[in-house]
């Protein structure tokens, strides 16, 4: 029986001390880290044969669309359901995302993503839900440009990989750019650009991005986050100049 070793950084609750546990799981062809974790969940016994509690972790759609299973896999920010165990030689080390408050084991609390999106007013201020006959014409190339950013699943991997997201900074992560930019480009959202740009001009906004470009490397949706940041830095600068001269 071919097996794979999984080493999990565990922590029973946010105040407790972390510890490591090693699990040995039967390997099947094309197996993902998420599948391996499901096997540990079903049979929570360590490689030494000791019973333990099941490893807490989030996992939902299993096809890379919900972003629930974001974690650190061998030190890299990745989705467990899109990472295949055959990629690795030695034991696979699993750790929770470090940029979000820990809940337990590999589970973290990502509600701050919602807070960051709210703070940046990441929405189009609709008149209401009633139909009003406004179906904006959007040229194909504009649509394609918006579409790549709207693929964002808010998994938070970009925040995890970013050196600027830390305890001393208010920067939330590059997902903010991916959410703001398509709204600014959208015919229905252009009018409300000002509010979003003002939010990005404040502390924790575009100026806090130091162009480390890690976000783009770990984004599971392949979103051009560096280009988004550059574009928004430019827009914010223009917006600030305009406001300075014309109020």
């Amino acid at each position: 029986m071919e097996t794979v070793l999984i080493k999990v950084k565990r922590q029973d609750d946010p105040e407790d001390l972390p510890y490591w546990e090693l699990f040995e799981v039967e390997l099947s062809p094309g197996m993902t880290v998420a599948q391996a974790l499901a096997m540990v969940r079903e049979n929570p016994v360590t490689a030494d044969g000791n019973s333990t509690s099941p490893v807490a972790h989030d996992c939902s759609c299993m096809e890379g669309l919900c972003g629930a299973c974001a974690m650190q896999i061998n030190g890299k920010a990745r989705l467990a359901c899109a990472t295949f165990v055959e990629e690795f030689d030695g034991p696979i080390m699993l750790e929770p995302l470090s940029k979000f408050p820990l809940t337990r084991d590999l589970r973290v609390d990502r509600t701050r993503i919602l807070e960051a999106l709210s703070a940046a007013e990441c929405w189009i201020p609709l008149d209401g839900l009633h139909p009003n006959g406004n179906m904006p014409v959007i040229e194909q190339h504009e649509q394609a440009r918006m579409s790549v950013f709207l693929d964002c699943i808010a998994c938070g991997l970009c925040s995890e990989a970013c050196p600027q997201v830390n305890k001393r900074s208010a920067f939330a992560g590059a997902y903010l750019f991916s959410r703001v930019l398509p709204l600014n480009l959208h015919p229905a959202g252009k009018g409300s650009r000002g509010g979003r740009l003002a939010a990005l001009a404040a502390r924790g906004g575009v100026a806090d991005c130091a162009n480390a470009e890690n976000c783009e490397r770990v984004c599971p949706r392949g979103i051009p986050l560096v280009a988004a940041a550059a574009q928004l830095q430019w827009s914010v600068a223009l917006h600030s100049i305009r406001r300075y001269f014309w109020g």
Binding site: L126, P131, N132, N134, E139, Q140, Q143, S147, A188, G189
Partner: peptide, 17 residues
């Protein structure tokens, strides 16, 4: 569909937009 488009969904377009 119109409502979703107004909320910011970028539906696929024809060359005419």
């Amino acid at each position: 569909v119109e409502l979703l488009a107004r909320m910011g969904v970028a539906f696929e377009r024809t060359p005419e937009g």
